[in-house]
Design a protein around this nucleic acid. Sequence first.
RNA 1: CGGGAUGUAGCGCAGCUUGGUUAGCGCGCCUCGUUCGGGACGAGGAGGUCGGCGGUUCGAAUCCGCCCAUCCCGACCA
Length: 588
Amino acid sequence: MPTRMSSFFLRTLREDPADAEVPSHRLLVRGGYVRRVAPGIFTWLPLGWKVYRNVERVVREQMDAAGFQELHFPALLPRGPYEASNRWTEYGDNVFRVKDRRDNDFMLGPTHEEFFTLTVKDLYDSYRDLPLAIYQIQTKYRDESRPRAGILRGREFVMKDSYSFDLDDAGLDASYERHRAAYESTFDRLGLEYVTVSAMSGAMGGSASEEFLAPCDSGEDTYVACTSCDYAANAEAVRFPVADPVDATDAPAAHVEDTPETPTIQTLVDLSNGRDDLARDDREWTAADTLKNVVVMISQPDGTREPLAIGVPGDRDVDMKRLEAEFEPAVVEAFTPEDFAAHPQLAKGYIGPGEDVLGQGGIRYLLDPRIAEGSRWITGANAPGNHVYDLVAGRDFPVEGRIDVADIREGDPCPNCGGDLTLARGIEVGHIFKLGRRYAEALDLTVQDESGTNVVVTMGSYGIGVSRAVAAIVEQSHDDAGMVWPRSVTPFDVHLLTAGKSDDHAAAAESLAAEIEAAGMSVLYDDRDASAGVKFNDADLLGMPTIVVVGRGLKNGEVEVKDRATGDRRDVPFDALVETLVADAARA
RNA sequence: CGGGAUGUAGCGCAGCUUGGUUAGCGCGCCUCGUUCGGGACGAGGAGGUCGGCGGUUCGAAUCCGCCCAUCCCGACCA
């Protein structure tokens, strides 16, 4: 039986919801696929649920095909295991915490590493049981400080998470590769365009890590890709090589100059160019000649705070996102007036390297990799209104450490081949990484090897944002009129409507609907007593891949078949309709 | 958590500055009629704790205070 719109639980909105910004949010709400219940929490209405389940089905089929085994943990989790890995604290405000009637702590699981690990530990003891790869498709909860963009980033969302367990690094490599291949086939089937970029392993600890990003304007992740080689990385993970040392034997001695009213790079550059005693003969000073020192506070989950100074070329800013990624799970805070008061050696606006100030016994001081040993700089002289010129890195102050957190720009040299980097945005729909032994060690997951020795298991962790993928598909596949579903996840194969209200139209549509369904395709039949325009617009909005119109061609025994994606329309005789639809579906 | 904005019917909004009958418009919904291939038309109707609490006042959607909530921009993640 076709689903009849006259009785289908669906209401489309004529106007965009006021709170929806990104296309997926706007269209999913307007099309009656989802409905907001609370910030970041949504109801899946019948149409949306069909899409969601199709996505979930594809994910499950590809996991099963790869030989991974599905299980299901609770979403409501006791505190204990998270103590062992220290994450009850580390996750901070991002977890929904609840108590039972006896005042025991529970949480709504934001992730399940501990439970996978502990369950394997419970059941397995021998190397002969490995390798193992298990997964679940689970509702996860994260009390995001700022949920946004509708389904793209909710506080309740569905994630497929897998874990692999291997005896050694070679085994982990193999498990990782199997997951990568499974992910590629999954996203291919979902009709998602994606790029694979290398990524930091983030809060979970570990080594190799790659993200699957669906490129689109609403993406929250910035990634770089090289125009010359196949290098691609999340902006947070890009690491530029340390610049080669330069010869500084001819460099003049460093000299402090009186530079009043120059607390910013721009004022400093302007003053330097404007004064005869400071101006260069060969060219103008630029911001890139200055060494900018940014002081921040690194705040650990346990509450300890430590100041950190970062030196970058003055034409660059510190990218806070990259900096945060570097110190996870610690949080980076701006230096407050109180912090400055507690460090009186820091002259705001005139901070520079110096004994007991930055480095050399003072605040921990790390330099951008572009600052070569032997390079000359203008920087703060640690006194208001004073800068030091011709300060040579490595000669006048030691290079105590490096940190690569400056902003990345279009055209920056590729760390791999030196070609030009491009910047783009994408939605993280998948993430695979080699966890290593962190959880296994913390939770004491070992197996006996052939010699009877206990060996710590090495793990991999692999996620797919199932609910997020629904939104990502819309982000990539829509036009002004509405959504355009890939056939693999469409809620219905065919959207059938009558343009014309005679009994003949209805009878023809009924019989065609039955034929189409008999051929194995699902039909959403718009049998409503609405004007043709309303039906056409709803059909475009709802986005089934094929729209069949029983209209003015009826008298000739023809219907119109419209391809939602291309907009192409063809008149097809009744008796050729099913054949046409089957052929179209097969071609897609 | 910082910055900005908003809260009035299922959805989108006006009214608030300058307090005053029964709180209004469009969409959607119900009834009747007309229309019938790209969000038709007429007539009639249903639907509201005006975010909450407190205050000022003869009288508060409107003024004041506090609170709550939501959205957007920045810092976090599938």
